[in-house]
């Protein structure tokens, strides 16, 4: 890992909600162009860690963050950082797919339009390109101007993926992106993520260990806000170093 440049590094990150400390002194390098999977029991701070990476925590009241999150070497919590520019570098998939209240086409074009693309032809191309990348183009190409809310949940999640890709990020973040989906749709999303890792750095939270085993290249194990163990997936699964990791992997703690 030492020769790998990292898009995304975390240095001594502490996060507090009011008086409650939910992340305790986390330091971590997320490997480039790999799938890193954050695992850990419910409430251990997985979502918080993920949201600290694109500063969505800014929108939580009473939150305090200290430490650094470096994206391409720049501390995103530093002064004079434009948060919209940071967020543009990352696409986010949430637990429940959240399509925007507009048509399928406009959902994809939303990000590019905000970032200044106006040209109709160019937008058409973007929409087609990223819908294909998310594996949705064939299903929706004849109804691009229908409301996105009418798609099935599985399709909506792929639409969210395409929408995230359309702002041309470097990093894809997913917070349990398959937990609201049926097995087949989950599998599709997993396959997409595996395909996308050749161009993107992917960070996914999951509580499904089998999913982690299927897709992870790198494992990050959190327990009660502490970073207990992280490392290449084969190593962590085969030889967990910390007893807590072992207990979690064998299902003794959950």
């Amino acid at each position: 890992m030492n020769d790998v440049r990292s898009h995304l590094s975390i240095r001594n990150l502490n996060v507090f909600y009011g008086d409650l400390q939910v992340l305790k002194n986390i330091s971590l390098d997320i490997p480039d162009r790999k799938i890193s999977v954050i695992i850990g029991p419910s409430g251990c701070g997985k979502t918080t860690l993920l949201k600290s990476m694109n500063r969505l925590l800014d929108h939580v009241d009473e939150v305090r963050v200290d430490g650094e999150v470096l994206v391409d070497g720049e501390d995103i919590y530093g002064p004079n950082v434009e948060v919209t520019r940071i967020r543009k570098k990352m696409g986010l998939l949430s637990q429940k797919p959240q399509v925007l209240p507009m048509s399928i086409y406009d959902n994809i074009a939303y990000g590019p339009r905000i970032h200044g693309h106006r040209d109709r032809k160019r937008l058409d191309f973007i929409v087609r390109n990223y819908l294909s990348a998310a594996g949705l183009w064939e299903e929706v190409k004849d109804r691009l101007h229908h409301p996105a809310s009418r798609l099935s949940v599985g399709q909506q999640q792929r639409l969210c993926l395409a929408r995230g890709l359309a702002v041309e990020p470097e990093i894809i973040l997913g917070d349990e992106p398959t937990s609201a989906l049926d097995p087949q749709s989950s599998q599709r999303i997993e396959r997409r993520l595996v395909e996308l890792k050749k161009d993107y750095t992917v960070v996914v939270v999951t509580h499904i260990l089998r999913q982690a085993r299927r897709i992870a290249d790198y494992i990050v194990f959190l327990y009660l806000g502490e970073l207990v163990e992280h490392g290449p997936a084969q190593d962590v699964f085969a030889n967990p170093r910390d007893p807590r990791t072992r207990a979690y992997l064998t299902g003794e703690i959950s």
Binding site: N54, L56, H59, T84, R85, R87, K88, M90, G91, L92, S94, Q95, K96, Q98, V99, L100, P101, Y110, G111, I114, H115, C160, R163, G164, V167
Partner: peptide, 15 residues
């Protein structure tokens, strides 16, 4: 308006 909907927009870099 659900918080997640706003977050979806923010996460795309919208103000």
């Amino acid at each position: 308006v659900p918080r997640e909907l706003k977050e979806a927009s923010y996460s795309l870099g919208a103000t």
